[in-house]
Simulated scan of single mutants.
Amino acid sequence: MQNRLQGWSKEYELGIKEIDLQHQYFFRLITRLADELKNSSDFPYQKSLFVELGLYTHFHFVSEENLMQRSGYPGLHEHNKLIDGLNKNKLLFEEGHIEAIQVIDFLKMWFISHTVKEDRKFAEYIIG
């Protein structure tokens, strides 16, 4: 498993079309956020990017958890860890305690770990 997002990888695909499409968008959103945070010093704009990411993250998690509930997945997991981590990193960034790259690294590592490990378990349960 790679430890950085370099580009979309088949490794991130689960074989569940709805989730795969959402993960592809999530990947593009993280990539765009990384680019914009590195290239823009417009702080209000940077903050609005975090709002966009937070809203999409919430949508994706509700959607994913609904699929898990509908299928009777016994390992239904909460996504609070990412939400808490994202909020913490966002606040630290806004207060000037961490750099944008640290937020991006957190998001990249979370995406890889969650998609390749946690969501893979769900895909195996659904697909068999």
Rank of each mutant, 00 (worst) to 15 (best):
L14S: 05
G85Q: 02
G7Q: 10
E78W: 15
Q69Y: 14
D105C: 10
D105P: 05
R32N: 13
K47Y: 02
G54M: 02
F122S: 03
R4L: 14
V51R: 09
M109R: 15
F106L: 07
F61V: 00
V116C: 06
E13W: 04
N80L: 06
K108F: 09
L53Q: 01
Y56N: 06
V62K: 05
R4Q: 15
S40M: 14
V103C: 07
G96L: 03
G85Y: 03
D84W: 09
H114R: 07
L76T: 11
E64D: 12
Q69D: 15
G72Y: 00
V103T: 11
K121A: 11
N3H: 15
K88C: 14
T31I: 10
L37T: 08
Y73W: 13
Y25K: 07
R32G: 13
F111H: 02
E95M: 06
N3Y: 12
I98D: 09
K121W: 04
S63F: 10
V51G: 10
S41Y: 11
N39K: 04
I101Y: 13
F122K: 03
Q69F: 14
S41E: 13
L21C: 09
I98M: 08
N66R: 13
I30P: 00
V103S: 01
D105Q: 13
G15K: 01
E65F: 10
K10W: 11
I83T: 05
N89A: 12
I30C: 03
K10I: 14
L21Q: 06
G7R: 14
F27G: 00
A123M: 06
L53C: 04
E36T: 04
I127M: 08
G7K: 08
L37K: 05
E65P: 13
K88V: 15
I30M: 02
T57D: 08
I101S: 11
N89E: 13
E65D: 09
L29Q: 02
H23A: 00
I16R: 05
R70L: 15
K121R: 13
L82H: 02
L14V: 09
V103Y: 00
L14Y: 02
D35V: 10
K47M: 09
H97Y: 14
Y12F: 03
R32Y: 08
F59C: 03
Q6I: 10
E18S: 15
E36I: 06
H97D: 08
A100H: 02
T31N: 10
Y125H: 06
S40F: 06
I30H: 03
K81A: 11
F106S: 00
L92A: 08
N39R: 12
A123P: 12
E13V: 12
L37N: 00
A123I: 08
L55R: 07
K47S: 07
H79S: 02
G128D: 09
A34P: 01
G96V: 04
E64Y: 03
L82G: 01
E13Y: 08
Q24D: 08
T57Q: 08
L37Q: 03
